[in-house]
Design a protein around this nucleic acid. Structure first.
Lengths: 165, 165
DNA sequence: TTGGATAGTCAACAAGACTGACTTAAAGTC
DNA sequence: GACTTTAAGTCAGTCTTGTTGACTATCCAA
């Protein structure tokens, strides 16, 4: 983008198909490991990855509406609803009628929901923390830069917005 | 690991729960984008992500056995089999009886399989390439370092092995 | 040669995504 | 006040992709 194709320069070094393929495979393997720890915990509770994602974002942005959560997760209403219903029935999530707009439902974690979210989050952070430690601060900065560039403009806007709330 | 907890140093700067959470969210959003391009292509052909993964590794390591592929993908034999069967029926993959051990099946891509694999791979590499360009060589090195640390020792061994073949 | 381990296949099932059609309630508009 | 739009939720049905259990074929070793 800001890079004006320096011919033969180091820019080309890491853009061979082989290098790109290494990156693709690294993403595949790393993502699998990344979800493995919380997955184990979830299974003990009879939940799936979908429940984890819902808990994560409700915790992250307490009081968010169903539509907002939908946009963050990128799934359909029906798909989210099944997950949300079980979480509400099990007393992990509370759904209150919106204050300003009564059509909306605002979502909150209960004490129990918070407890599970923390356990899941801690399992995931543990792996992230040791990866960060092993790789060092400079690598971490690069890691985030590449991921942000990879997610594309639309997701980047959503991702950056969450920073400020 | 090699890091001896420099108190107050820059090591601590990026290990706050907030920083770790940013990393977790970046992984989530980036992985979604990462799979989105091939997913579109796959849908046109009536395939899913599982078919993509199979094609990728069969291409990567032509003639590999079902068991080897199983280990790479980390799924059950039965799950892979359904995917593999459709690929064979559709003439994208060829399954030959193992030369040494007749119990084994060796897997190869046909011309048609190679064509689809290249299209999928190119869609995915496109995004990876522009992310790499945008972030720069140093960031890319860091990206890979963190992913490798994150995947853990077991997967790292598998991942590194593939390098040399 | 018999018996156990390994490689792969077939069948049935469950989770979690999807689409489409519909209801209810509230908000906004003419 | 009647009409339209929006937010949420529901019902029904499908698809992909994961699971377990039972089975066949082959290899190897006692």
């Amino acid at each position: 983008m800001a890079d004006s194709g320096t011919p033969g320069g180091e820019t080309l070094l890491f853009l061979t198909d082989e290098q790109l393929r290494r990156g693709i495979e690294a993403m595949f393997f790393a993502y699998r490991a990344f979800t493995a720890d919380p997955d184990r915990l979830l299974e003990e509770h009879g939940y799936g990855r979908a429940h984890h994602r819902a808990l994560h974002f409700i915790n992250r942005q307490s009081g968010l509406t169903v539509t907002t959560l939908l946009a963050l997760l990128g799934v359909t209403k029906q798909s989210l609803n099944r997950v949300l219903r079980t979480l509400i029935e099990d007393g992990l999530v509370e759904s209150r009628v919106g204050r300003r707009d009564k059509r909306e439902r605002q979502l909150f974690l209960t004490e129990e929901g918070l407890t599970l979210e923390r356990a899941l989050s801690e399992a995931q952070r543990g792996r992230m923390r040791s990866a960060y430690r092993a790789a060092g601060p400079q690598a971490v900065a690069g890691f985030r830069q590449v991921l942000e560039a990879m997610m594309g403009a639309d997701l980047q806007r959503i991702y950056q917005q969450m920073k400020e709330e």
